[in-house]
Design a protein around this nucleic acid. Structure first.
Lengths: 230, 230
DNA sequence: GTAGCGATTCTTGTATGGTAGATGAGCGCC
DNA sequence: GGCGCTCATCTACCATACAAGAATCGCTAC
């Protein structure tokens, strides 16, 4: 297992990226136990950098470190997914509101260029990259790129679910919705922009409960009180 | 220096709380350099737990670890403060929107009880506690307590500024604004609730530039492009 | 066959030593 | 006197060793 170029960043930082990828793509599955020693052996390093990577991942909500017991890949929490969506919607709605109020022609051009690229993209991986780039660009235009990094940190919870439902994505629809958003912000219409973004983010909502039914082992148990809200 | 009861959590976790407090209260001042060895000696432990505490604090944006060089208390970033406010406003606005749509009588009672307590509170520390409790209660009613913890994590940037401006707070005004918010959500008026929350959060805006002028050493330099936005 | 107890073997937490790189002081050279 | 190099010293990074709690397997007693 390669862990990136040796020399640039510290080993611990590279490990975070590597493990994060393994978790999102479910090569490390929710509920799996991993030990510092195992990972250290797999990567041919000592326990210490592994330990530090674990700390970072635990703070991101991906690992659960149980002192003196074990460290496990956190199961996907349906309530966590719901609240991650809440966070994302809160911030992205506010972003497009601001973009609508301050966007100029150059901004619209950037966004349209990304959409054009997305229409060309054939493979799904590239499509998702461009999707991320579209949203990040909106954040940059609004001047809150740091806030977007925050969304990215929490989007990983949503990404694990998305990875389970690959194939059902409707790329054409996503592109159409992006166009609606750009049109609204270009007109400087904050209310319309907000509505368009809410629509766009609400798209995948109904998939979650089906996914839980398909992969119950990957999810934390839900108490009935929340079930209706999902 | 006491670091809390020995036995419950790990030393590293207790250190995080202790150092965090020292940073917010500016006993550790922005720009100060601290080394693993120093802190380890001060607390009478080894370097390893200190190191892990540093990692956690760095991820929270309070420390800047410069490999092979030194670790310093991050200076307050005016742009970071601005974006932390953006994050807070985004989420809190969305919270009151939802509370307005789902709040019942019991919820309003809880909020009113907190306001009543706040009117009695004499010392400023207790007042701020109740202020936090008010906002956290709103989040709980909306069912997004986790999202609020996120706001708290970033509020620490704002708290350092607030610590510099103690005394100028206008408690009566804050209470009045809380009442307006409760009235709006009780009426189920989402738009009015949103507006009231935006007003409430905008209160301390003008203080930042004055604070930067008073304590320039505690802040990162600002590029002129941003100055107008503060 | 089963329940209960104990040693073994996991796990993470902490301590310490050694290493590479960056910084800054002091000296020599221009 | 001022500029540049060398070296001592500091830093965080990584490796290794030890400690302590938790879980599990296996034995023993019933």
């Amino acid at each position: 297992m390669n862990v990136g170029e040796p020399g640039e960043e510290t080993m611990a930082v590279r490990l975070v990226a590597a493990l994060r990828d393994e978790i999102v793509t479910l090569r490390l599955r929710p509920g799996d136990a991993i030990s510092e020693s195992d990972i250290a052996a797999r990567y041919g390093i000592s326990r210490q950098p592994v330990r530090e990577a674990f700390i970072r991942l635990a703070q991101q909500g991906l690992l659960l470190i149980r002192p003196k017991r074990a460290t496990v890949i956190k199961k996907i929490s349906p309530d966590g997914v719901r609240q991650s969506r809440f966070i994302r919607e809160s911030i992205e709605v506010e972003i497009v509101r601001r973009v609508a109020l301050c966007a100029d022609g150059a901004a619209a051009d950037q966004l349209n260029a990304l959409i054009a690229e997305q229409e060309q993209a054939s493979e799904i991986h590239r499509f998702h990259e461009l999707d991320e780039e579209f949203h990040r660009t909106l954040a940059r235009i609004a001047g809150v790129e740091y806030a977007w990094r925050l969304v990215e940190d929490h989007k990983i919870q949503l990404d694990r679910v998305r990875y389970l439902t690959l194939g059902v994505s409707s790329q054409q629809r996503a592109i159409a919705e992006h166009k609606i958003i750009v049109a609204a912000v270009s007109n400087g219409d904050a209310a319309e922009s907000e509505a368009a973004m809410r629509d766009h983010l609400a798209r995948a909502e109904h998939l979650l409960s089906q996914t839980i039914a398909d992969y119950p082992d990957y999810f934390e148990p839900v108490d009935e009180a929340l079930e209706v809200a999902l």
